[in-house]
Design a protein around this nucleic acid. Sequence first.
DNA 1: TTGTAGGCGTTATCAA
DNA 2: TTGATAACGCCTACAA
Lengths: 338, 338
Amino acid sequence: MNITIRDVAKKLNLSITTVSRALDGYSDVAEETRQRVIETARQMGYAPNQAARQLRRKRADSIGYILPADRPRFSDPFFAEFVAGLGDEAAAHGLDLLVSSAPPNSQAEQRAYERWIQSRKVDGMVLNRLHLQDWRVQYLSEVGFPFVTLERSQDACDYPSVEVDGRRWFKVLVDHLAELGHRRVAYIGAGAELKIQADRLAGYQDSLQSHDLPYDAVLVTEGDLTSDGGFYAAKRLLALPQPPTAIACVDDMTALGVLHAAREHGRVVGKDLLVAGFDGMAGFEHTQPPLTTINQPVYQMARKLVQMLAAQIAGQVLVERHVQIEPVLEIRQSTVGK
Amino acid sequence: MNITIRDVAKKLNLSITTVSRALDGYSDVAEETRQRVIETARQMGYAPNQAARQLRRKRADSIGYILPADRPRFSDPFFAEFVAGLGDEAAAHGLDLLVSSAPPNSQAEQRAYERWIQSRKVDGMVLNRLHLQDWRVQYLSEVGFPFVTLERSQDACDYPSVEVDGRRWFKVLVDHLAELGHRRVAYIGAGAELKIQADRLAGYQDSLQSHDLPYDAVLVTEGDLTSDGGFYAAKRLLALPQPPTAIACVDDMTALGVLHAAREHGRVVGKDLLVAGFDGMAGFEHTQPPLTTINQPVYQMARKLVQMLAAQIAGQVLVERHVQIEPVLEIRQSTVGK
DNA sequence: TTGTAGGCGTTATCAA
DNA sequence: TTGATAACGCCTACAA
C-alpha cells in the first residue's frame, strides 16, 4: 500500500492536522515542527493523494484540451508546439493538462466535454480552432465553466481569449504579393465554418480591394489545412485557363502541398508563381523554396492562454481579457526567389 | 453546487447504493429500476465525481505521457500524431490522458514522473524517445509502476513495448541508396544517448558492410531531430573535400533541412544527391522533391501502446509483450528523381 | 432486490 | 501551536 499522511504523522508523533498544515505552509505551525515534517515527508517519499485532495478541495487542479483531430494521420506540427506550451505553463501553475482528441463537432467531442466538466475532472478548458458559431463556447458560457480560447467565435458572449488579428495579417500577406506586382492572386482556404477561414478570407478580400484587384471566385478555393488539401487545390488552380501567378494559403501545411503542385506543373516558385503560408511553423524555413509566411509565436500564445485560464480559475479578475498577439511577416524565397 | 448521486437517489426515493449499482450495471438490480435510474440520471445531468470515485476505487483512470520537448519551438509533427493516437485509444478504454512536457533527462522531467506516480494521478505511463540507459525505465520498473514504451532501452528489465526494428529498417533504407550505385553515403543522426540513434546507426553500418562499403567517420554526423539540425549537418557534409552523394537521415525533419542545404549547394536532389528520411510523416510526400522514407504507422503504434497499457493496468496478462510493427519503404523522388 | 454504514486520504472547523 | 473530528462523494461488504 502507498504512504499516506497518517504514516508521516505517526512517525513524527504528530497529528495529521499538523502535518497537513506544515506541508501546506500555514503560518500557525512552529517553524521547527515544519522543518521536521518537511524533512520526514521527503524522506518517506510522501506525496498527497490527489484524489483525496481534490475531493476535499473541490478542485481538480487540472485543465483540459481536446485536439481537433479529424483524421488518424493527424500530424500537424502546430499542435505539437501548442500542446507543449499548454503543458509547460500548466505545470508552472501547478496544474495538470488533460488531453483528448475528437473530430470537431462530433458526438465524441461533445461527450468528452460533458464528461470532463460534469465529473469535475478539470477546472477549465482551452479551446482553439473555433467555429464561427461554436457550440463549445455556447455550452461553456451557459454552464458558467471557465475557459479560454485561441481566436474568437462570433457568439454573443464574452470570454477571455488570445488572438492574432487574422484579417489584418492576412491582408499584410496578400499586400506583400500584390506589391510585387501580382494581379491574379489565388486563395486556398479551409472549411467555411472556421473562424480562421472567415478572417483570413476577409483579409484576402481587403487586400484585393485596396489594390483595386477584382475578386474572382474562381481563384478562391477550399483546402482542409493539410498539405494534401493544398496539393489538390493548387492543381485545380494551376489547371485553370488563366491560372493565378500567386497563391496565398490559409496555413503553412496547405502551402507545402502547393509547392509540390507547382513543381509538378513546372512552375518555378518565387518567380513564375509566388506562394505564401500562414502560421510560421518551425521547419518551414527549409521548404523548397523556403516559405514566406506570417510567423505566430504559437508556444507563447499557448502559455498566455493557460496563464489567463489559471487566473480565471483562481477567481482573479483578468486585467486583459482579449490579448492581441502580433506575428511577423517572414519574407522568404517562395515570394522573392532569386 | 454540483449534482451528486444523493440528489439522484432522493429524487427517485431510492438509496444511493441502488443508484450506484444500477449505473454501474450490476445484475442484482431490477431491470425496471435500472431504467428509471438511468433515465433520471441522464435528465439531471449526473456524472460521478471522479475524485470521489478514484479515492474509493484507488484508480485514477488516467494514463500519463510526457512530451520530450527540448525547446520552446517544439513543432515535430510526429508528436501531434502520437498524442492523438494515445488520446483516442485512451478514450476507448475509458481512460484519460494526462500530458506534460519536459526536456529529456531534466530535473523537471524527473519531478513530473515522481509527482504523478506518488500522488497517484495516473495508473500508468507511456514512454517514447527512449535512451539506451533510461532512468525512467529503471525507476518505473523499480517501483513496479505500469508502463509501456515505444522502442526499447538496453536496461536489463522486461517491460511491454511496441517497436519498429530500427536497425533492420534503416538498413533497408541505406540498401536502397547503395543499390542505386552510391558509394559515399552519409548518415545524419541524433544524440548518441538515444535508442533510435543507436539502432539506425547500426542499420547504416550493417548496410555499408553488406555492400562492401568502407565506414568513413567523416560521413557520420550528428543532428538534433530538427530540420535546422539537418540543415547545418548537411552543409558541413557538402562542404567536405569529398562530399557524399547520398545522405540517410535519422528522421524526416532532419531530411527536410538536408533538402534545403542541398539546394543551397546547387545539388539536384534525386540526381546529384540522394536524400532519405525515416518516420513517414504525413506531409513529407510534398517536400521538394518528395522524400523517400520509412513510413511508420505512428497513430496505430500509439493506439497499440495504450491498449497494452490498459490491459496491464487491468491486471490482464499480455499475450504479446513485445509488439513488432512493420513499416514500409516509401520510395519517392528524393532518391529516384527524374 | 434494496438499504445501511464504513471508509478511501485529505482539508478545514473548532476546541484545547 | 497542536489535535480531534467532520465532511468531500463514492463504492461495497453486509444486512434486511
